[in-house]
Design a protein around this nucleic acid. Structure first.
Lengths: 204, 204
DNA sequence: CAGCTCATGTAATATGTTACATGATTAG
DNA sequence: CTAATCATGTAACATATTACATGAGCTG
């Protein structure tokens, strides 16, 4: 997949490994990322395959760099991939893995984790919203300008924003449900009834 | 991470590698998964570390199996991990990576991809909803029973469901936006104005 | 000259996927 | 007897992270 992420970035304009790495901290990083230790070897492999072509570029004030441009072969490969249907991706979510076992820790600790996580996602949401503002300022009303690059950029950004909002809303919902759950448990305890042991078959 | 996923599953009851693999197709698979080729070696490593203990169990009608139980050390490790705050996870989304470059393919092809993807997520949502129904039937009104295992199971399931709904809604939104975008482009074309070239700086 | 950014790499390790491989038992 | 399920593994490969390593040139 990294191959295609790189081809996408080079399709806009030729870039060096270092510049590519920085683009992976730009808008594409919202749904794909890579470290330079992965990018440099990948560029060499791609050049050997003929998907990209590198040229050494001397600079006046900075050290020389190796700039890669996408080739005709590279563009064909990219377009072919774009047309192949994606399979459903498996979800991997550490926070959910933890939450699934929150019955093992104290309720207030679980709540703290949820609040902490909510703050992190709120910060990320703020970043995304700022990015969208920037995009809109640079490109104006996107539907009006008719620029398809800006258009699809806005569409993916819209997804990223929705995702963060979902996460934040889920944290709120989970906290609220937990409050109600704990209140009932305390109430049941006060009435002398046990709070309920583990239910066989809840998992699986 | 796989270590903790396995510890979580073994915390409920001892399981063999084969049974574990199957649990990874149960409710936990909605946010974590692993193949048997990863599970078996991991179990050996964990046993060497003393987090779990395996016993050979003979069976009457089936081949013998090796059942692993969590140890006191394993439980400590699991609880310690649960209390450590999670870092924000990087998003990796193939569909978004593609969508970001949809300006390179025909609009109707892009739309087909979006519709296809929406169908896949709808199927997954249906599975999740069925799972929730099952859970509610088995455990009754969860807040009432007071079972914390079932409670957190329901909370994570709620997230999975929300996630799929977000994706489906996003597909609809993207398709609708694309229709409007294309309509304007056609209109602009009819008026003799070009539909707008690539905008420098839309990416980065 | 100390610390920063630019620029590019390698090595060790960890994680994850696909394919290969084996053998028991059961149901039809 | 044949296909399916139960049960467990290894090997090769692909992907990704962390740490190590170097050196140019600019800024204060």
């Amino acid at each position: 997949m990294l191959v295609y992420a790189i081809l996408e970035l080079l399709q806009h304009k030729p870039l060096s490994g270092y510049e590519l790495k920085k683009r992976f901290s730009g808008s594409i990083v919202f749904f794909w990322h890579a470290r330079h230790s992965q990018v440099y070897p990948e560029l060499k492999r791609m050049e050997k395959q003929g998907l990209i072509a590198g040229t050494r570029v001397e600079q006046e004030t900075r050290p020389a760099k190796r700039v890669y441009a996408i080739t005709a072969d590279g563009e064909r490969a990219l377009k072919a991939w774009l047309k192949r249907p994606v399979a459903l991706q498996a979800v991997k979510d550490q926070m959910m893995l933890k939450t699934f076992a929150f019955h093992l820790i104290e309720p207030q600790e679980a709540a703290a984790q949820l609040r902490h996580h909510q703050r992190l996602h709120q910060r990320r949401l703020d970043l995304y919203l700022a990015t969208r503002q920037e995009l809109e300022q640079r490109c104006g009303e996107i539907d009006a300008t008719g620029d398809p690059i800006a258009f699809w950029n806005a569409v993916t950004l819209g997804y990223s924003i929705e995702l963060e909002r979902s996460y934040i809303a889920w944290c709120n919902w989970a906290l609220e449900r937990q409050r109600r759950f704990n209140a009932r448990a305390v109430e049941a305890n006060a009435n002398g009834a046990p709070a309920g042991g583990p239910t066989e078959g809840a998992v699986g």
